[in-house]
Design a binder for these strands. Structure first.
Length: 269
DNA sequence: CGAAAAACCTGGCAGC
DNA sequence: TGCTGCCAGGTTTTTC
């Protein structure tokens, strides 16, 4: 489910928990992407949630004595529920219990993760991450230097979280479509002007997706229960065999880096 | 070292 | 209906 817009949408839906007291955490299944540390609950309970924010695709709970790093993996989602509500669904793995409401983490594939750490920026999952795509640190000059250092194709490069965070398979395809760059193009051959197009396109696509609440592909729902509406705006993802909306060329599907990749065979050069 | 492939896991769906 | 195989939005680990 989640790339940056979906994580951002999820964050906004639970932002109201900031300044509340985290009474307790209940971990029903510790076997996520990594085993949840057995001391995590003990070190996190009965603390005020000082800040709640996002870095890359991580939702970060800043507590008084520690920070929780939550990643939704490929299939994770959060929902808000009343404390007294004991309606549990299959794959409900974690409950974050506050005064009158709780946040429930559900994740069928268990590719998500939960860590506690004193210093967020030093944590191994955070330390090596590239800039936020919507910040000024992600710009044409920066992208060009990354492209010149790499020998991989441009799609793989922008999906690599060391280069820029938050861009997953869908938004990589959509960003490259908007910038008219072929996803297979060797990053080494890109010039500054092309990098600018990619940067501008990525920001535009991500901002628009956030505005409408993320992409509903299978069943993405924000924590407040509303679906994402971005699907109707996808230009190439999942449109194999259909006509390009701009040039009437054909949208084709190829596999790049073991991931399905969609692009217009005519206007993306 | 960097790049490519495999791995983690479950559910849904197409095809037989 | 039921089985099999394939696919899925992420990211680390292993292999070449």
């Amino acid at each position: 489910m989640p790339e940056l817009p979906e994580v951002e949408t999820t964050l906004r839906a639970i932002k109201k928990f900031q300044d509340k007291n985290l009474i307790d955490i209940k971990v029903h299944n510790r076997n996520l992407r990594w085993v949840v540390n057995k001391d995590l609950e003990k070190n996190s309970r009965n603390q005020k949630l000082i800040n709640l924010y996002r870095r890359a695709k991580y939702i970060i709970f800043e507590l008084e004595n520690t920070n929780l790093l939550l990643h939704l993996g490929m299939s994770g989602n959060l929902r808000i529920s009343k404390i007294e509500d004991n309606c549990f669904l299959k794959h409900d793995h974690i409950e974050f219990i506050f005064d009158d409401e709780k946040i429930i983490y559900n994740d069928p594939r268990r590719f998500g993760s939960l860590h506690a750490t004193k210093n967020v920026n030093d944590h191994k999952l955070i330390a090596g991450l590239g800039p936020e795509p919507l910040s000024n640190n992600f710009n044409a000059e920066y992208l060009l230097t990354r492209c010149k250092k790499s020998k991989s194709n441009i799609k793989t490069l922008i999906m690599n979280q060391k280069n820029v965070v938050g861009i997953g398979n869908i938004y990589a395809c959509e960003s490259l479509y908007l910038s008219k760059i072929n996803p297979k193009k060797n990053s080494h051959n890109l010039n500054l002007q092309e990098c600018k197009r990619i940067v501008d396109s990525a920001k535009k696509v991500l901002n628009e997706a956030i505005k409408v609440g993320g992409t509903t592909l299978k069943d993405f729902y924000s924590a407040d229960g509303s679906p994402g509406y971005f699907k109707i705006k996808l230009n190439v993802y999942g449109r194999e065999g259909q006509k390009c909306k701009k040039c009437k060329g054909e949208v084709v599907k190829v596999i790049i880096n073991q991931r399905a990749t969609f692009y217009c065979s005519s206007c993306q050069s």
